[in-house]
């Protein structure tokens, strides 16, 4: 049973002390942060009430190490932005592009657990893989890093082309990558009349992303969700016929549930698509994120840099020694 008993339980101050003195090493901080510690703002939570200790600045990793060993904070964070004066959050240089997938907040969770469990953590991993595919294949981005946050994943993009984009453009990337807008595919037919094409009829670019995300949502519905604009009866119908979507027969599915209901459904699904991530995080240039290598004390797991997403298993790779020893 892989020490599951103590994971997801809160770490005591002694556990924290143990972790930061015996287990934590600066080498566990990923290189993209280690090489510019002096340009990032750090924040800490000492009491479990949130990161109230902000505007922290460390000239080098030795000072950070000292601080962590001595204070053994409940949680540690660093900014996604680099600044000339991180202690004042001034002189903004650049910001990573971030997607935050929290297993607890996935809008469609067949597991139905009230915190996180193996099943929804797996779901989070699947979502991360989809997002990365789109970032690579559609937006052509590289330097994409993944960090296990303790309750989900952070995708941190350091591709030089996006580092200086403003919040508006990041919001647009978010909508593209998550499938947040219902595609409007208008075109002029050969007869000169305006026509429109359903998203599933155009399997490329954004319409394809939208179709994929929507498919994910619909296939992961438990049937008990309350969805805007969708009645109980419609929901039952969706559940009954969603096999059609599984085998990519969208047109047939649309026919069965009726075109008007369908339009309403995908309008609502678009909103759910966006909720697969925490949208606020992506558009916030000055966000602080849990520091990879630090301890997520609420669940007693390590915020861990993920080298290989496919083989990564949080219940194996993000468990601190004090938990392993204790179980």
């Amino acid at each position: 049973m892989r020490g599951v008993i103590r994971i997801f339980q809160e770490a005591t101050p002694e556990d924290r002390k143990k972790y930061y003195t015996r287990e934590w090493k600066p080498e566990k901080i990923p290189a993209f942060i280690r090489e510019n510690i002096h340009l990032r703002e750090f924040g800490f939570d000492h009491t479990g009430q949130g990161p109230n200790d902000r505007y922290r600045f460390f000239r080098d990793e030795k000072l950070l190490k000292k601080f962590l060993r001595y204070r053994a904070p409940y949680a540690a964070y660093s900014s996604v932005a680099l600044y000339d004066k991180p202690w004042k959050r001034e002189g903004w240089i650049s910001s990573e592009l971030v997607f935050d997938v929290d297993a607890k907040d996935i809008p469609v969770r067949p597991c139905g657990c009230d915190n996180v469990c193996e099943e929804c953590l797996d779901q989070a991993k699947e979502i991360v893989a989809m997002i990365i595919d789109t970032l690579r294949d559609d937006l052509g981005l590289q330097e994409i890093h993944v960090v296990y946050s303790g309750r989900g994943y952070h995708i941190r993009v350091l591709d030089p082309t996006i580092l200086r984009l403003d919040s508006e453009v990041r919001g647009q990337i978010l909508r593209y990558v998550m499938g947040g807008d219902v595609p409007r595919l208008l075109y002029t037919g050969l007869d000169g009349r305006m026509r429109s094409l359903d998203h599933f009829m155009a399997p490329l670019g954004y319409p394809r992303v939208f179709t994929e995300r929507s498919r994910y949502i619909i296939l992961h519905l438990s049937g008990d969700e309350k969805i805007e604009d969708i009645t109980r009866q419609t929901m039952n119908k969706i559940m009954e016929y969603r096999d059609l979507i599984e085998s990519d027969k969208w047109g047939e599915f649309k026919g069965v549930i009726g075109p008007r209901v369908y339009d309403r459904l995908i309008g609502s699904v678009a909103k759910l698509n966006l909720q697969l991530v925490d949208a606020k995080v992506t558009v916030d240039l000055k966000r602080i994120l849990r520091l990879p290598s630090s301890l997520h004390s609420k669940v007693s797991m390590i915020c861990t840099y993920v080298k290989d997403l496919e083989s990564f298993d949080p219940l194996e790779d993000a468990v601190p020694d004090f938990v392993k020893e204790g179980s």
Binding site: D138, L139, G140, Q172, R175, D181, L204, Y206
Partner: peptide, 17 residues
């Protein structure tokens, strides 16, 4: 995009193009 003259989701992207 910044000035919302066009939306990213109105475009068809492939490999960054």
């Amino acid at each position: 995009l910044e000035n919302r003259r066009i939306k990213l989701t109105e475009l068809i992207l492939k490999d960054g193009e």
